[in-house]
Simulated scan of single mutants.
Amino acid sequence: MRLAKFLAHAGVASRRAAEGIVAAGRVTVDAAVVTDPAHDVDDTRDVRVDGEPVAAEPREVWALNKPAGVVSTASDTHGRPTVVELVESEQRLYPVGRLDAESTGLILLTNDGGLADRLTHPRYEVEKTYRARVLPQAVPEQALRSLRDGVDLDDGRTSPARARQVEPGLIELTIHEGRKRQVRRMCEAVGHRVIELERIAFGPLRLEGLDPGGARRLSAAEVERLRKSGPAHAP
């Protein structure tokens, strides 16, 4: 197995981040510094990062219904509550992507760096669905068409999306990108300010049966469906 992949599977970091850790000379294999992320290793090798041994740990994936005011990080220097604190696991979990502090809804946490990379890398186009309550409440069809076709933001045009008005003032939007505060900025671009934002689906997984702040560990079948999410042509 490639060294970067081994580190990702051990929960050290995502595969891309693990490649940087290796390239920085922070990893040893059998006491020798290795800087090639493609270096081949297996469970019999003594792999260490910054001198600390790395061993594959049981991989877990959790779904959390994030409440407002909770930050999507493993720790926070300002003392705010974090999503990791809401999950009862003995493993070192990290959020898969982010929801801003004011937003609520489905967020995944895992110690499987490879899966996290699979779910967040743009080439896999894993869909996320949101419901945004907006002002003004009357959302014309032209605004919905613009959201579907893509809108121009300061960091480029968005990819085509699915958009519909569930009821006056409530838009359901499905995207496969993950730019910072993207849904809020898309709605603002078509003249509507988001006052509440909830993520209701991540790939095939929907926010169902979880109260705000509630979390549950995903089954093996659910994790496998997540691994296979995205277009069939994605590598």
Rank of each mutant, 00 (worst) to 15 (best):
A18W: 01
H39G: 05
G150L: 03
V183W: 02
T129Q: 10
E125G: 08
V27K: 04
P58G: 03
G97A: 07
D36T: 12
G105P: 03
P140H: 14
A13T: 11
A23R: 15
A232M: 13
E127S: 09
G178H: 08
L144H: 07
L93I: 01
R59S: 02
D43T: 14
D36E: 14
E52P: 11
L115A: 00
G97V: 01
C187A: 12
Q165C: 15
K66P: 13
D36L: 12
S229H: 02
G113Q: 05
G25S: 02
K180S: 14
S219D: 06
K180E: 15
G113R: 06
S146P: 08
R145K: 14
V49G: 01
E52F: 10
Y94M: 13
V47S: 02
A215P: 04
Q142N: 15
R15E: 10
V83H: 07
V29C: 06
L135G: 13
A221C: 01
G213H: 09
R148Q: 09
E222W: 00
T174Q: 02
V134R: 04
C187G: 10
R48V: 10
V70R: 08
P53T: 04
E127L: 10
D155A: 08
L115E: 00
L147D: 04
R133T: 15
G79H: 06
A8W: 03
T104M: 13
V27Q: 06
L115S: 00
A232R: 15
G156A: 07
L147I: 08
Y94F: 14
K128D: 04
G203A: 02
E102F: 13
L147F: 07
I175H: 10
A189W: 05
A55I: 14
A4K: 08
G230C: 05
L99C: 09
G191I: 01
V126Y: 00
V83G: 07
E57M: 14
E57S: 15
A234W: 03
L210M: 07
P160F: 11
T104G: 13
R184L: 07
P95W: 01
A189D: 04
A163I: 14
R185P: 08
G51V: 09
D43I: 09
H78S: 15
N65Q: 04
T129D: 09
A232G: 15
Q165M: 15
S159V: 14
V61R: 00
E222H: 00
G230E: 05
W62R: 00
G114D: 12
G69A: 04
E188D: 12
L86A: 11
D42C: 09
G213I: 07
A143M: 08
P204L: 01
G51Y: 10
H192G: 06
D155P: 06
G191V: 02
D154E: 14
P235I: 11
S146T: 11
D117Q: 10
A8G: 12
K66G: 11
P122G: 07
T35H: 08
V29Y: 05
L210V: 06
L205G: 00
G20E: 14
E19F: 05
Q182H: 08
